[in-house]
Design a protein around this nucleic acid. Structure first.
Lengths: 253, 253
DNA sequence: CCACTTAGATGCCTAATGCATTTATGCTCC
DNA sequence: GGAGCATAAATGCATTAGGCATCTAAGTGG
């Protein structure tokens, strides 16, 4: 039994070693950049200019440089494709099925990023790039996320390249999961906002309505937000208090 | 502004493209194989035979073959190093800091795996390998995981190689997080077990005591377990009911 | 056969949440 | 400029989940 195990070990080691020496996969970073505008999740897509999958829409991405950290590569991609810097970004998952890119073996470390819609719209506009689109994500879900479709500004569906539909579904699941315990709206709203706006963001991310009063109580009782003292006027009704996100009191966390 | 942005884009693309063509990183898979025995988390470590970090202890790992999926690579590593097949395993995080391995750029896709302690102990014993150890994880935490130490069977600390201490800390955090909503104990216990055993597993993973009655109610009310009808005797007190994990009634999920 | 130990059920208290009600207040329309 | 409208924001109540204490059950081992 010992000898058998040792032999197996040896064989497996050699198989893996040879493969790694003679053919290394390419490593890329893709970024699922999400925002919430007009009550729904949106994401930034880039239309593929060349083959394969020409004309289809892909997440912004790029190869990882040999001396560049993964986080830095994600930041670089965001700066290069969307002109955005200092964006909240976090590693999501690594996709590496052998056949996902027909050209060669590409292992893609995917990040998701969150940004306030105003910033993203301005950045896309400044770029004036026809191959750049801010697409609305239609999420099919019953409990878990079943799939996503991307719909362009004109209302037409944008066909997604490679396995990017699966990647976006994973990103939506992660953002939904984080919403329960992390102050994510932080990244998706300007400095001051009303509780209604915050709730609308949460509802758009979760894809379901939330109870107004429970939401208010939770968010205030947990000290996630604090009033600025100002109110938003010109709305045609009682002006709501404006809030800002409170730096969490990191007492015992 | 358009031209500037386009030029930036072009430059960034070329920089990334050149780098990827001329030097590709190596891609490895490491596995944090966790179990719970004697009331604490344990993990399987391999002592490094060669330089660098000779004599230090590392997670079992290996390079990803060019036509092999990441999941398959993780399964292969587990089979080769621990002789284990059909183990619960899930992708954890990808570690890719440029300096983490002094030899060359290695990007490591890390999986965590859970296995019943009996199986793991038998597998390690069958191998009879001096360079293989089942180490106890000492987790420093106050709310979040602050760090981990690995302690060998003899009670001596096993110094960890590379960034593997950080990797194990990430694995512990993930397992703790999953415990709240996923039936993880499933993978760490034999087919039949008492509620006390299940609670001890949860307590070991979380590193804190749990309320006995609340735990019982939650786990039964949510239908996570079902009684087998048998009882465990010979314990010196009232024999507890034996339970098995219930396949969740996937009604609306 | 009695003491010990853990199992397992029951009840109570508190906190969190959903839902309904009430009052506040600026805006728009006439 | 006043009435009505829409939403804000506070309050109260019912339900539920979880923490805690108590009580009884039932083998084991002296």
């Amino acid at each position: 039994m010992d000898q058998t195990a040792a032999a197996q070990d040896e064989l497996a080691f050699l198989a893996a070693y040879d493969a790694s020496v003679y053919a290394r996969p390419s490593v890329a970073v893709d970024v699922a950049l999400l925002t919430v505008a007009r009550g729904s999740l949106q994401t930034l897509l880039v239309q593929r200019a060349g083959q394969p999958q020409q004309g289809r829409w892909a997440l912004p991405g790029g190869f990882v440089a040999i001396d560049e950290s993964l986080d830095a590569a994600a930041a670089r991609v965001l700066a290069a494709k969307a002109g955005l810097e200092d964006v909240f970004s976090e590693q999501l998952y690594t996709f590496g099925e052998p056949g996902r890119d027909p050209r060669t073996r590409v292992i893609s470390v995917v990040y998701f990023a969150l940004v306030e819609p105003g910033r993203l719209e301005r950045a896309v506009e400044a770029r004036g790039d026809r191959q750049l689109a801010l697409a609305t994500l239609e999420v099919a879900a019953n409990g878990r996320v079943r799939g996503v479709r991307a719909v362009g500004p004109g209302g037409a569906e944008l066909p997604l390249a490679f396995d990017h539909a699966a990647i976006l579904a994973t990103a939506v699941e992660r953002v939904r999961g984080k919403l329960d315990y992390a102050p994510i709206g932080f990244e998706l709203l300007p400095g001051a906002f009303t509780l209604l706006e915050l709730r609308r963001v949460h509802e758009a991310v979760l894809g379901r309505p939330l109870n107004k009063d429970s939401f208010r109580r939770k968010v205030i009782d947990r000290g996630l937000v604090e009033p600025t003292g100002d109110r938003a006027t010109g709305l045609g009704h009682r002006p709501p208090e404006l809030y800002r996100f409170a730096r969490p009191a990191e007492a015992d966390r």
